[in-house]
Design a protein around this nucleic acid. Structure first.
Length: 416
RNA sequence: GCCGGGAUGGGGUAGCUUGGUUAUCCUAGGGGACUGUGGAUCCCUUGACUCGUGUUCAAAUCUCGGUCCCGGCCCCA
């Protein structure tokens, strides 16, 4: 027996119905805020991802050579492809450009709860505007998505990568050492960050004040303790968020995000019910276009981990509307089968979803089947009614049934 | 890459410690009791030991290895 590959899943009809339902909420939310959908290839030149994240990510990519000896990789995320597409196709479009995307991504990692090798991301980017309004718009869109999905318990944190960078630089951390120090600070591993800083000649006092800075967490008021333009910038973002009624994320200056290209505001949303893999959304402002051969353009974006959000919703017991067939058409006797198909076709053309027995089953079995698929009505096509151009319409929830003229059938069913 | 727990019909499970008849039960699927009426009941039926290897007269059960799943670590763009 062949299993689906490690870290991948089959989505069965019930799964897909649920996934499409939530997907459409995300799309609608993005569209309501003026974002328009794009779709990029599932594989790209491997170089694209190396440029974005460094050569080490090759270890976690599904990378391969094609028959033309090109180095390709399945996309591990969609920001880089989106920005590549911007550079290739949209660089002369009126700014700001607001785009969103949804699709699967691939990472060669050890699967665990909420982590798969094939997973789905929903993301949005605003390209070409470097203002606090832009950042606020992006955060508001992300928060609105979580709200619209119906997730009850989540935590949004927003920080500014410039604050920590500036302080570290001021005490003598050079650009090449910055990433590893930031990585430790992001996780609040101060004992591990200290030796790195000490080696760079940082005093214990300076290090302590930086550690304290990463622990700056709370409401907008904590920003008063950290003077500077970045702090003011965050305050502006918060005021725009508040004006839009988007809620008030926590300030957490310890939110760092690993990579170099983030330039300012960074934010994360997490769902505590998820345990170890609880981050469901991450984003910030960055510049990438110049890495891909375009002009340097400021962008802000985020990505939602679709699978994790669904997992969180499931744990919260969220329900979604299950779609049912309107009608199941049954031929009462074998000689009315052709007529039954004629009626099924007519119903479908008139916008009524209709299924029909294909297995030449006896009526009782067909009725049972109709019940098991949750059909709202059963249409019984039998000779007695046909003599009067009618069929019997049975309401499966009440069990009531009555003769209905065939010409009235679609309207009669739709009226329920 | 590391640590730990798992895998028995389509779904959920018993059996495994202590190897031994036809692998348990629930559910589901197909057919029938019921020639034009579902959800109930009864009968018949379909269908499984993750894969390979070793030990043994005998392996679902014990050994080793592979695969996959679950929880956690590392990583997380």
């Amino acid at each position: 027996m062949i299993q689906s590959p490690r870290g991948t899943r089959d989505f069965l009809p019930n799964d897909m119905e649920r996934r499409r339902f939530y997907e459409s909420i995300l799309r609608q939310t993005a569209q309501r805020s003026g974002f328009r959908e794009i779709q990029t290839p599932i594989f790209e030149e491997a170089e694209l991802f190396i440029l974005r994240s460094g050569p080490n990510i090759l270890n976690e990519l599904y990378a391969f050579k094609d028959k033309g000896d090109r180095d390709l990789a399945l996309r591990p995320e969609m920001t880089a492809p989106a920005i590549r597409s911007f550079v290739n196709n949209m660089s002369n479009d009126p700014k700001p450009i607001k785009i969103f995307y949804f699709g699967q991504c691939f990472r060669y990692e050890r699967p665990q709860s909420g982590r798969y090798r094939e997973f789905f991301q929903f993301g949005a980017e605003i390209i070409g505007a470097a203002t606090p309004q832009t950042d606020a718009e992006v955060i508001a869109t992300a928060l609105e998505m979580i709200r619209a999905l119906g997730l009850k318990e989540y935590r949004a944190r927003i920080g500014h990568i410039g604050i920590l960078r500036k302080e570290l630089s001021a005490v003598g951390i050079t650009a090449d050492r910055m990433p590893e120090v930031l990585q430790k600070l992001d996780k609040k591993l101060y004992e591990e960050a200290w030796p790195l800083m000490e080696a760079a000649g940082v005093s214990r006092d300076d290090a302590d004040s930086i550690f304290e800075l990463t622990g700056t967490v709370g409401g907008a008021d904590v920003l008063d303790r950290v003077p500077g333009e970045e702090s003011e910038y965050l305050k502006q973002i918060l005021s725009y968020l508040s004006a839009m009624g988007a809620g008030t994320p926590e300030i957490d200056l310890g939110v760092v995000r690993g990579l170099d290209y983030y330039t300012g505001m960074v934010f994360e949303i997490e769902a505590p019910v998820l345990g170890a893999e609880k981050q469901i959304c991450g984003g910030g402002s960055y510049t990438l276009s110049e890495l891909f051969g375009g002009e340097k353009v400021f962008s802000t974006g985020f990505a939602v981990g679709f699978d994790r959000v669904l997992l969180a919703l499931e744990k919260e017991g969220a329900t979604y509307p299950v779609s049912k067939m309107d009608a199941y058409v049954i031929a009462a006797t074998g000689d009315t089968t052709l007529k039954a198909f004629e009626i099924a076709g007519m119903l479908r053309r008139n916008g009524v979803s209709a299924d029909i027995d294909l297995a030449e089953r006896k009526m009782a079995k067909a009725m049972k089947y109709a019940s098991s698929i949750g059909s709202k009505f059963v249409v019984i096509v039998g000779n007695e009614d046909l003599a009067k151009d009618s069929v019997t319409l049975r309401d499966m929830s009440s069990g009531e049934q009555k003769p209905v003229k065939i010409t009235d059938l679609p309207a009669e069913i739709r009226s329920h």
